[in-house]
Amino acid sequence: MMATISPDNSGLRLAVRYTVLSLIAVIFLFPLVFMVVSSFKPDAQLLADTASLRAFLPVGDISLDNYAAAFARAPVGLFVFNSVLVTGVTVLLSLFVCSLAAFSFVFLRWRGRKLLLAIIVATLIVPFETIAIPLLLIAANLPWIGLDGFQIGWLNTYRVQIIPWIADGLTIFLFVQYFKDLPGELIEAARVEGASSWTIYRRIVMPLAGPVLATAAILKFLIMYNQYLWPLMVVQQESYRPVMVGLQYFFQLNRAWGEIMAYLSMITVPVLAFYLYMQRAFIASIASTGVKG
């Protein structure tokens, strides 16, 4: 798709470039290779192989036994479904809410916006572990009006895994820093023409926000998909458990490393798929914004 070959991309230089890129690739690739390769090996061999480069080669006694055992041990499909659902919904809502907030911080003029932004950025410092208990007490006492009427308490639901995570300082800050680089003249021009803030957000800013949307989506996806402590605290029913809590099913006393690797390989698929998808969207959006910028 990028067929434009500039003059200095010829011959030797090109070979050097690919060599460098590939060497670096090897350094980054090996955990994934180890994980996937190990998932096909029986435990004794897997552990013996960790001492040598055999750890990265699908050699010896290769089978799908670990996968079968993993499915027997835990409802893998359910966990993946829960995680993808919670993650997907959170990412979508987060992109909307956070970009809207960032838009307001960068392009609208209102009193106290600098202070508010500073507070939001400061929340980046708060490690989740340290507010988990107060947050639990809050979530256990929040009201909710749903199909089955009014209730107190959010425990054992999907929403308790989603709503507290929609807005976060990092995502808002990411959008803010990106929006600052957008050409201000476009927004000014639209404003002069009498466009409402909502229209400017929807018609001008967001179409230009491709790269940051992709970046924010990936980062949020990773954070949400790897949730452990929070779902552990607020969800006591298997039917709502996400993948990282599910990982604990494999660390019982009858620990089996091959099954662990099989489970990890399976739960990595959605993340990888999402990243590859976003990367394509990312490049496509760059192609289009490049023209506008």
Binding site: I133, L136, L137, A139, A140, G153, L155, L229, L232, M233, V234, Q236, Q237, E238, V245, G246, Q248, Y249, F251, Q252, L253
Partner: peptide
């Protein structure tokens, strides 16, 4: 019956106790 993985069990109980659950 609701089963928990051992590694997460004590934390789950403590969280449930705090939340009255």
């Amino acid at each position: 019956l609701e089963s928990f993985p051992q590694g997460a069990y004590n934390d789950s109980v403590i969280a449930a106790a705090l939340a009255g659950n």
